[in-house]
C-alpha cells in the first residue's frame, strides 16, 4: 500500500493537527517505512479463520463484581484542566 502526502494531510486534519510542510514530509517518510515493514506481518483476522475453539482465543472473563479503579482526584490530576470532577477541554462542539 502506497502512502501519499494527501493521506498524511487528511489524517492530520481528522486528528485536528496543524502540520508544517516539513512535518508532513517527515511523517510521510516515516509512515511509508512503517507500512513497508508491516506489510509482511500476517493479521490476527487471517489466523482466526482457521482457529478452533480454545485455540488462540482467550475465554471471556467471568466478571462478577465491580472493583474500584482510580479515585476521582487521581483522574483529574492526570488532566491538564478539570472542573467539578470533569476533565475540562477546549470547546469541541461540531461546527454548524
Amino acid at each position: 500500500m502506497e502512502i501519499t502526502q494527501e493521506q498524511v494531510k487528511k489524517t492530520a486534519a481528522m486528528a485536528k493537527l496543524r502540520l508544517s510542510d516539513e512535518e508532513i514530509e517527515s511523517l510521510h517518510r516515516l509512515l511509508r517505512e512503517l507500512v513497508a515493514r508491516s506489510a509482511g506481518i500476517s493479521l490476527p483476522e487471517e489466523e482466526a479463520s482457521t482457529a478452533e475453539p480454545g485455540e488462540a482465543a482467550a475465554a471471556p472473563a467471568p466478571f462478577s463484581r465491580p472493583q474500584p479503579g482510580l479515585r476521582q482526584e487521581e483522574v483529574v490530576a492526570l488532566a491538564p484542566a478539570a472542573e467539578r470532577g470533569f476533565i475540562r477541554v477546549p470547546r469541541v462542539m461540531d461546527h454548524e
Binding site: R65, Q67, G69, L70, Q72, V75, V76, I87
Partner: peptide, 17 residues
C-alpha cells in the same frame, strides 16, 4: 475492565487505567 457500570455516579469516579 472491572469498573462499575452504575448510572449516575459522580463524574470520573468509575474509571481505571
Amino acid at each position: 475492565c472491572r469498573c462499575s457500570t452504575r448510572f449516575g455516579a459522580p463524574p470520573n469516579s468509575q474509571v481505571c487505567p
